[in-house]
Amino acid sequence: MGTTYKVVLINYDDSEAERNVFNVLNSVNKEMSTYLKTSLISELNESKIDEWVYVSDNFLKVAVFSQETCLATEGSFNISIGYFVNYYGFGPPEIANSYDDSKLMKLRDQISCSSYKVDSENKRIKRLNDVYLDMSAVAKGFAIDLLSSYLDSYSIDSYFIELGGEIKYKGHKSPNQAWLVAIENPDLTSSPILTLSSKEYENLSLATSGEYRNFSRREGNLVSHTIDPITFKPINKKHISVSVIAENVMKADALATALNVMGLEKGLEYSNKNHIKSLYIVKEEGNLVLKTSKWF
């Protein structure tokens, strides 16, 4: 997944569980990374239109969830915009410049929430349109949830997982010390803008989508890594980042991306309507301000 991770286990020294932490995370990378030519998603992207590709239970789960979330957010979250992710420089470098503007214009009509079909019974997926699937906005969250389930199977009561900025913890750091999660100040020079504690938020699942770390330059301008599936262009919103707390990190990850695309006003309206715990960081008159949904 091209990122760093941190896993802390409290009062647990089973070497087998510790060794398998990397294996669990790497299993997701091997299936869902577009940077690996041998991954399942690469196989699917290289398959012919209307050709079934057999996939794993984990891949199937993410594909189904992604399609459901696409529909629920009216397309603000859509994993079938990979061609545009690549075009703006956030995909595999060897294909980043392989599309021209005329080709991209033709591909716009191919993208929808139903651009691929899932056959859950037979564990297979096929592309119905000429789309390039990219699960980067949800794979990290799923990987954390998968690792969390693995640690739970060992009856580990307290742990902390961080993968590429997405976070899940369980229990407390110690009986008298809480887990603390800092929501980073986008200025990157001062103290966290908000700190969450396991004394207030039990078994937290948190994801953040922001533009201040992951961006590229195009024709001298900064370009957001978040591509709007509606306009097919990098987002250009007045907010700086959005964080989401949900029942699992996969959901928080996907919703953070969707709300980032929606923007502040529409995103908070959607959050309030759908019981989503969301927090936007915006800059007003030079000051950073927190805007939250009523559920946060």
Rank of each mutant, 00 (worst) to 15 (best):
M1A: 14
G171N: 12
R218N: 14
S114F: 03
K126N: 06
A256Q: 09
D253K: 04
I41C: 04
K170C: 01
G164R: 05
T231V: 12
S80P: 00
K238E: 15
D14N: 14
M250Q: 12
V223E: 13
Y270I: 07
F59Q: 09
I281G: 06
N26L: 05
H275V: 08
N272A: 07
V282W: 12
I276H: 06
V24G: 05
E162N: 15
V131C: 10
S197K: 00
V28F: 11
G75W: 09
L71H: 03
N203L: 10
I125A: 08
S205P: 08
Q110F: 01
A139L: 01
S153R: 05
A63M: 15
V223L: 11
Y87W: 13
Y12H: 15
S112V: 02
L151Y: 06
I156D: 00
V244K: 10
V64M: 10
N274F: 06
A143E: 01
Y5Q: 04
S158T: 00
N97A: 05
V131E: 11
N260F: 09
Y280F: 15
L259R: 13
Y88K: 11
S33L: 11
M32V: 11
R108G: 06
I144H: 00
E31V: 08
T38F: 05
S98H: 08
L196W: 03
G210D: 02
Y280V: 10
M135V: 12
L204C: 13
L60V: 05
K277P: 01
N58Y: 07
I193E: 05
I167D: 01
F215S: 11
S102H: 00
N45T: 06
S149C: 07
Y99A: 02
E166A: 00
Y212C: 02
V242E: 05
G286Y: 14
G220L: 13
I144G: 00
S278D: 06
T226W: 07
Q110V: 00
H275E: 12
Y12G: 08
L151K: 07
